[in-house]
Simulated assay, not measured.
Amino acid sequence: MSRRQAREMALQALFQLDYNQTEAETALESVFQEQPAINEKTRLYTCELVKGTQSNLPVIDDIIAKAAIDWKIDRMTGIDRNISRIAVYEMNFGTEPLPPNVIINEAVELAKSFGTEESSRFVNGILGSLIKKKD
């Protein structure tokens, strides 16, 4: 399984859900059509990330809002917001325990690939502050 590929596809689906009136299944199917050769474990992890993030969205957004001082969730770029949501889901609700530094590193890499020049620092700052608060 490629967790990175699952995170990339989850980001694409969550981005669609942020801006379109559609169901998670529709967004996931759209993303999967672009990646027909993915294995079943990657597909399942993508579904977990999207559906898990969606089902915990109010709590996840509250966690992010408390960490993102002077930034409202709806003012963040869609990419930064959804990368942060995926990472918070994995840290707090994910079915597989992963070290927080791995989750943050993966989120920063997604931000470098899909976001703006500032995205990686922004996402790292939000997620890093969450870790500091837990300690």
Rank of each mutant, 00 (worst) to 15 (best):
C47S: 10
I60A: 01
F93L: 07
K51Q: 15
R81S: 01
V88P: 02
N56Y: 06
Y45V: 05
G94R: 06
T53S: 13
D70H: 11
I64P: 04
Q35M: 02
E40D: 12
A65Y: 14
W71M: 14
N39A: 06
Y45S: 12
D61F: 13
I38Q: 10
S55F: 01
G52I: 00
A24F: 10
D74F: 00
L28T: 01
A67W: 10
D61K: 13
Y89V: 07
K41A: 11
E48S: 09
T26P: 09
P58R: 04
F93W: 05
Q35T: 11
T95V: 01
R81M: 04
I64L: 01
T22V: 13
E40H: 09
I60M: 04
I73Y: 09
M76Y: 05
I79A: 00
A65R: 15
D70C: 12
E40A: 12
R43G: 02
M76A: 05
A87R: 05
A67H: 12
A87I: 03
S55V: 03
K41D: 15
V88W: 00
T42D: 09
K66C: 05
C47F: 04
K66N: 14
I73D: 02
A24Y: 11
D62P: 10
D70K: 15
T53H: 05
I38R: 11
V59A: 09
N39R: 06
K41G: 08
S84F: 07
A87Y: 02
L44R: 14
L28Q: 07
G94H: 04
I38Y: 04
Q35K: 14
I64M: 02
T46M: 07
T77Y: 00
A87P: 09
G94W: 00
E34A: 13
T53P: 07
N92D: 03
I86D: 02
A37Q: 14
R85N: 06
T42W: 06
P58Y: 10
T42H: 08
A87F: 01
I83D: 00
Y45H: 12
F32D: 01
R85I: 07
T77C: 00
I86P: 03
L28V: 01
M76L: 15
D61L: 06
I86R: 02
I83Q: 01
T22Y: 05
T95D: 11
G94I: 00
F32T: 03
T22E: 13
T22L: 14
N92L: 04
D80P: 10
A37V: 05
D61V: 09
A65P: 08
T46G: 03
N82H: 12
E40Q: 12
A24N: 08
Q54C: 13
G52H: 04
I73H: 07
I60L: 03
E48K: 12
Y89E: 11
A87T: 08
N56S: 13
T22N: 12
E29Y: 09
S55P: 09
E29S: 10
Y45C: 08
I38T: 10
I38P: 08
N39S: 11
W71L: 15
T22S: 14
